[in-house]
């Protein structure tokens, strides 16, 4: 009773906060609120080194009614949530990675596959995007995965080992303090630390979780600290990117101060950087699931170029909320 009461409170508080901040920003806002109370689907990104999709479906006796594949061209399956996917032998063997569908977008946005690729994943743990990058690189080139937290780095290394990644070097610094020479990388993924609002969906919509508490408290200092770190990380990413290189900045939050505002500030600082459309296949099967980035929020105006960045909402793509932007350096 008490637990249910707490949950109701937490849900209500989230709803109230989201309503106050995002009612005018998120399209079909009421549908958005409804989607937060629906459980997030379980999705697997199959490791193409070890299996193909059809074989996998047969092996796990998945019936077609259980498989929802909105994006048929990628090796991704939505699967029944009753199975213990994290405990299966194939998980241990690296045949798949349990991953939210929307978190594939930042990696798919990069043009990868040359032996000369020098790729940096600045905030790499737990390793879903890193192992996806390695797969798209066909284990060629160099992938540097950085993660400052010891605990999270352990998970990252376990993921890399489990998925059989052989082109990756793991570093352990705060991303903004990385010591590589300027312009070392052809591609940089900065999936930065954020307030993680996009992950606030059932069943994670619970009280007493640290990140939820941060959000519930709406701690201004916490948010301000995040903005500062995001800005420093973006600046470092810029300096490490080669001319002609690609930088993808993504977060799992809806907050324009962490998304469009950060992108806008970086654009204003560096005239040799420009925003480009995400490089998803054309015609993109993702189009109907993505919204353009915003150019105005609470009286602030951002560059019209920001419409090239994309937002993912759970009522449009049944996954977690995301924001993705892509730059190229001249």
């Amino acid at each position: 009773m008490n637990r249910n009461h707490n949950m109701m409170n937490a849900e209500q508080i989230f709803h109230n906060l989201f309503t106050e901040r995002y009612r005018d920003l998120i399209p079909d806002f009421d549908q958005f609120l409804v989607s937060l109370n629906k459980p997030q689907p379980i999705g697997l990104r199959l490791n193409t080194r070890f299996n193909d999709k059809e074989e996998f479906i047969k092996r796990f006796k998945l019936s077609s009614s259980e498989i929802i594949i909105p994006i048929s061209e990628i090796n991704y399956l939505e699967v029944p949530s009753e199975n213990n996917w994290g405990g299966a032998l194939e998980h241990h063997l690296g045949h798949y990675y349990i991953q939210a569908l929307s978190s594939l977008i930042p990696v798919l946005s990069l043009n990868l596959g040359s032996e000369n690729d020098r790729v940096l994943d600045m905030c790499a743990a737990p390793g879903g995007k890193t192992t996806h990058l390695a797969e798209l690189m066909n284990d060629k080139g160099v992938l540097v995965a950085n993660e400052p937290s010891l605990g999270r780095r352990r998970i990252l290394k376990a993921s890399l080992s489990r998925m059989g990644v052989s082109n990756c070097l793991v570093t352990m610094k705060e991303g903004q303090n990385l010591d590589f020479p300027k312009e070392s990388f052809t591609h940089i993924l900065l999936d930065g630390p954020c307030s993680s609002e996009g992950t606030l969906r059932a069943p994670t919509l619970r009280p007493n979780k640290k990140k939820d508490k941060n959000y519930l408290n709406y701690n201004k200092e916490f948010r301000k600290g995040l903005h500062h770190i995001q800005s420093e990380l973006l600046e470092k990413a810029y300096s490490l990117l080669r001319p002609g290189g690609e930088l993808v900045y993504s977060t799992c939050t809806y907050d324009p101060y962490e998304n469009e505002k950060q992108v806008d500030l970086l654009l204003k600082k560096h005239s040799d950087l420009s925003l480009v459309e995400l490089n998803l296949s054309s015609p993109s099967p993702w189009d109907s699931f993505l919204c353009d980035g915003v150019t105005e929020y609470r009286g602030e105006h951002y560059s019209s170029e920001l419409t090239k960045t994309k937002r993912v909402y759970p009522h449009q793509l049944n996954s977690i909320g995301f924001y993705v932007s892509k730059f190229v350096k001249k």
């Binding site: 890399l160 059989g164 052989s166 793991v170 570093t171 352990m172 610094k173 010591d179």
Partner: peptide, 8 residues
């Protein structure tokens, strides 16, 4: 840089 893991 210092590395904590290198390939496999």
């Amino acid at each position: 840089e210092e590395y904590e893991s290198i390939g496999l």
